[in-house]
Structures are given as structure tokens and as C-alpha cells.
């Protein structure tokens, strides 16, 4: 179970706050990585670890965009389509990804490798078009760079590298 498996990490998080409840977001990130998404059972488990009513945790999971209660791919690709990115190549990037991955934004590929999403400003507007892959930044992703990027991510999965949809080990 989650607490037994991540006891040190969770205890270290709890020690930062005078209130257990403050540990909710960081513990949800751990659970999300452990279970691949925050389904009902994992939400209940987190609630029990932190002595919270289930409904409070369901509400929190529903509120924040980085918590996924539905299945997502090994990599969540978040393309910023906000102003100014949408006028600086983001639309072309979304179209290219949709075509290559054969999914519309908002969906996951059949092989469960990628979930493609449109997101709002991710604070890298000077680097447009930008995306995050599991919350790691990729700058100036013009369509010509997409094949290599996707290949790279696929290789990561094949090599058994540590993968965190919550971005817990992000390196850039």
C-alpha cells in the first residue's frame, strides 16, 4: 500500500507542516505516480493516510488540472495555446501532434503512450511554441522537431527509465 511503500517520503512531507491536511497535494502527486491516475480507490487511500473525509479529497482532485482521475498515457503532452503562443506556432504544433499521434487534443493514443492536451500559459512565452512532457519543458518545438522528441520519449519508456506523470523527477 501507498503509505508502507513511500513511508519515508510521506513522513518527510508531513513533517513540513503543522497540519496533516497541508500534505494533501504532495501526497496526491505520489499516489498519482504510483497508480497511474487518481481513481476512486487511490483517492480513498490518500484520504485515509491523511485522516480526511473522502469528499474533501475528491473535490481537490477535481479542482486542480494536474491531477488526473482518468487514464492518461505514459507521457502527458501539454501544449500551450494561450496568447501569445497561439499566434507564434502553437496551433501548428497542436495540428502536427494530432496528425502524428492520430488523436485529438484531450485524448490518449491507442497504445496508451501519449495523452495530448491544450493548456494555458506555462510561463515560457518567449520560447513559443512550447510544450511540457510530464511537466518537463521543451522549448521552440516547431513541427520539424516533433519526430525526434516523440522518439526520445518512446525510448525512455522502453529503457525502463523512471517516469513520473506528476513531474516528480523533472530535469528541465
Amino acid at each position: 500500500m501507498l503509505y508502507e511503500k513511500y513511508r519515508d517520503e510521506i513522513d518527510a512531507i508531513l513533517a513540513r507542516y503543522p497540519s496533516k491536511r497541508s500534505a494533501l497535494l504532495p501526497v496526491l502527486y505520489i499516489a498519482q505516480d504510483a497508480y497511474g491516475r487518481l481513481d476512486d480507490a487511490s483517492i480513498r487511500e490518500v484520504a485515509e493516510i491523511l485522516d480526511l473525509p473522502y469528499t474533501d479529497v475528491f473535490e481537490v482532485v477535481g479542482f486542480y488540472t494536474l491531477f488526473y482521475n482518468e487514464d492518461v498515457g505514459k507521457f502527458v503532452l501539454d501544449v500551450c495555446d494561450d496568447v501569445p503562443c497561439c499566434f507564434c506556432g502553437a496551433e501548428e504544433l497542436v495540428a502536427d501532434l494530432e496528425q502524428r499521434l492520430k488523436v485529438k487534443a484531450g485524448y490518449t493514443t491507442d497504445d496508451k503512450m501519449f495523452t495530448l492536451r491544450r493548456v494555458k500559459c506555462i510561463a515560457a512565452c518567449d520560447q513559443a511554441p512550447v510544450l511540457q512532457a510530464n511537466l518537463e519543458f521543451h522549448y521552440k518545438v516547431t513541427p520539424d522537431k516533433v519526430p525526434a522528441l516523440l522518439e526520445d520519449l518512446r525510448r525512455k519508456v522502453e529503457s525502463g527509465a523512471q517516469i513520473s506523470i506528476s513531474g516528480r523527477f523533472a530535469e528541465h
Binding site: L66, A123, Q132, L135, E136, G167, A170
Partner: peptide
């Protein structure tokens, strides 16, 4: 820190 700054947080 915003959740998207996953690297920044680390």
C-alpha cells in the same frame, strides 16, 4: 510554486 515548475521545485 506552480505545479508546472516541476524542475524549478526540485
Amino acid at each position: 510554486i506552480r505545479g508546472e515548475f516541476a524542475y524549478g521545485a526540485r
